[in-house]
Amino acid sequence: MSKGRGEAAAGAPGLLLRYLQEQNRPYSAQDVFGNLQREHGLGKAAVVKALDQLAQQGRIKEKAYGKQKIYFADQDQFDAVSDADLQALDAKIADLTSKVQSVQQSCRHMEAELKELTSALTTPEMQRQLQELQEECGGYERRLENIRAATNHVTPEEKEQVYQDRQKYCKEWRKRKRMATELCDAILEGYPKSKKQFFEEVGIETDEDYNAKLPDP
């Protein structure tokens, strides 16, 4: 056992007696060890030995529950409490509990507000973003002015005429393609060579040769 651990074990009875009197509630040896070990460096064996010693001396009380023992301060050393005093303590506990709940609720609200403020943009970031948006908006405004100032606008009538011409030419395209296909098929019925050789000899160029695709109607 180290010197420090030995000194802690020697002073364990007095330390544990004060602890049980101050807390005035029942504890197992494991509870006491867990509560005081980190701060005072007490070993589990030293805690058990000191509690048993205090109980044998009658300075604390112990009760056994199966294999486990519970230790607590001797209640004879405390002044008797009347029913009126107990009621006053209960009222005080209820009042303090209400205050604790109110403070906890305020803390939750403040934590939520802090989280919102932490995730929000800082003033320099907001100024920088505002400047970027103003510049972007200015660009759109200049573009809009250029469009409005242009003199080559297409009128609705001209637009409608373009659509009508497109439909007309696509219709004629389909018609002539169908006629040419039917004519070629008729010739190929008596042609001794392949369709490709026929097109090469005659010099026929197809839409597919130029990746030309007939628009959907």
Rank of each mutant, 00 (worst) to 15 (best):
E172S: 15
K3D: 15
R38V: 04
G58V: 01
Y71D: 05
L96Q: 10
P217E: 10
E111M: 12
R59M: 14
I204L: 14
D74Q: 02
V81I: 07
T206W: 01
V81Q: 04
E172Y: 10
E22I: 08
G190D: 11
L51Y: 02
G11A: 04
K69I: 11
N146K: 14
Q161G: 00
G34I: 07
D95M: 11
Q23K: 09
Y27P: 00
S102D: 14
Q21P: 00
C184K: 10
G190W: 04
Q104W: 05
P156K: 05
E160A: 15
G203D: 14
D79K: 15
L36F: 03
H153S: 09
E182A: 14
G139L: 07
G43E: 09
D185P: 01
F199A: 06
G58W: 02
K115W: 05
R38K: 13
T97S: 15
V100Y: 10
E205N: 10
W173V: 07
R108L: 12
G190Q: 09
T151S: 12
K92I: 02
K92T: 08
G4L: 04
L188H: 02
R38S: 15
D185A: 07
P217R: 09
C170Y: 08
L144I: 03
P192N: 08
K159H: 05
T123P: 15
A12C: 05
V154S: 09
D216Q: 08
E132A: 12
V103Y: 05
E125C: 02
K193I: 02
A55G: 05
C184R: 14
D85T: 03
N24D: 07
R176M: 11
E182G: 08
G43D: 10
A91C: 00
K175D: 15
K63G: 07
